[in-house]
Simulated assay, not measured.
Amino acid sequence: MTAVLQRKERAAAPAPGHPRRRRSPYGLASVLFLAPLVFVFAVFSWWPIIQSGLLAFQRTNLVAVAEWVAWENFANLFADPLLGTAVVNTAWFTVLALLFGFPVPVFLAVVMSQLRRGSAVFRVLVYLPVAVPPVVAIMMWKFFYNADYGLLNNLLGVVGLGPYPWLQDTAWAMPSLVLEATWAGAGGTVLIYLAALTAVPKELYEAAESDGASIWRRVWHITLPHLRGVLLLMLLLQVIGTFQVFTEPFVMTDGGPEDSTVTVLLLIYRYAFVYGDYGMAAALSVLLAVVLGALSAVYLRATRTWSSS
């Protein structure tokens, strides 16, 4: 009897090198806990994406019965001359936003990290524009940009400059939008950089300072290398965000003057809510998603080695 029991125990025992897997008692509970969240996310995120993909191949105004038109929406989209204008304007906004809006938060974060006193006050002041509702901020800047009685022209007039047609001239309109967007969005980025700077060892700065390194050499050789991963991620997020700019041109200029501030998202809005062609709007949305997805994949692959080094 004892020999039989010993053989059963050896048969039930796990093989050497393969420990027995213990079933987690929290598996079912975790699934039940996450199920409502996954369901809500699927209904409000995944399902609209699927609907947009199907809508891109249909002709509909969401009132009449949808008609399947295959690739006709995409053909009509590429035949629209305003599409090229919107793409160029969006790319121009992105370039200006990267030239001015990307280095400004880095500079502010580095300067604020070196402050000995009053850093909390400056953090509040820098983040304050983020707390202002976007439409309110844009309307305020629209008042500042007024060519007749705007604050900017009045201030520049004191030193003998201007007046400038900020939003009424095709050359000035887009830089004006970029200036407002940089002011409104820089605060959150500054706080992210400040949080990343807390991970930089203080001993490196102390050693560099004792060796007589200037503040700019410390920033170039210590701060920026430690921010490399965060900088690359924020650059990608800013490119994606600027490609989807909508509120500034919609509220401040409505795409004018002479369509100089019509962006891709503003064109999508016009297709859907001005022309009532939701199929064209969905087709352009799908194209934008594909372009941004491909751009992100290429960017992440190209910077994978540099960001991890």
Rank of each mutant, 00 (worst) to 15 (best):
M1V: 15
M1N: 07
T2G: 14
K8W: 03
E9F: 15
A12S: 13
G17P: 12
P19G: 06
R20N: 00
R20H: 05
R22H: 11
S24P: 06
G27A: 15
L28R: 03
A29Q: 05
A29F: 14
S30D: 13
S30C: 05
F33P: 04
F33M: 09
A35N: 07
P36N: 08
L37S: 06
F44D: 06
I50T: 12
Q51C: 07
Q58M: 09
Q58E: 09
L62A: 03
L62H: 00
E67C: 04
W71Y: 07
E72C: 08
E72S: 15
F74V: 02
F78S: 13
F78A: 12
L82G: 02
L83W: 11
L83Y: 08
T85C: 00
A86F: 13
V87C: 02
V88C: 04
T90S: 09
W92E: 11
L99M: 12
F100L: 15
F100V: 14
F100A: 15
G101L: 09
F102D: 12
P103M: 05
V111A: 13
S113A: 10
L115P: 10
R117Y: 12
R117E: 01
G118F: 06
S119E: 12
A120M: 02
Y127S: 10
L128T: 14
L128I: 13
L128K: 10
P129M: 09
V132N: 09
P134E: 15
I138A: 14
F144T: 01
L152Y: 01
L152K: 00
G157P: 08
G157C: 04
V159S: 05
G162I: 01
P165E: 01
P165R: 03
Q168M: 02
W172N: 04
W172R: 06
W172Q: 04
A173S: 12
M174E: 00
S176I: 05
V178P: 12
A181W: 11
A184I: 02
G187P: 11
G188D: 03
T189Y: 05
T189G: 02
V190F: 14
L191N: 01
L191G: 08
Y193W: 01
P201R: 05
Y205M: 06
E206N: 14
A207D: 09
A208N: 13
E209W: 06
E209K: 11
S214K: 09
S214I: 00
S214T: 02
S214Y: 02
R217G: 08
R218D: 03
R218F: 00
I222L: 03
I222W: 11
T223Y: 09
H226K: 00
G229K: 06
L231N: 09
L233P: 05
M234T: 10
L235A: 07
G241M: 05
Q244R: 14
E248V: 07
P249F: 11
T253F: 08
G255F: 11
P257L: 00
D259M: 08
S260T: 13
T263H: 09
L265Q: 15
L267H: 10
I268K: 00
Y275K: 12
G279S: 04
A281I: 01
L287D: 03
L287G: 08
G293T: 08
S296C: 12
V298M: 05
L300K: 01
T303H: 02
T303G: 05
S308T: 07
S309G: 15
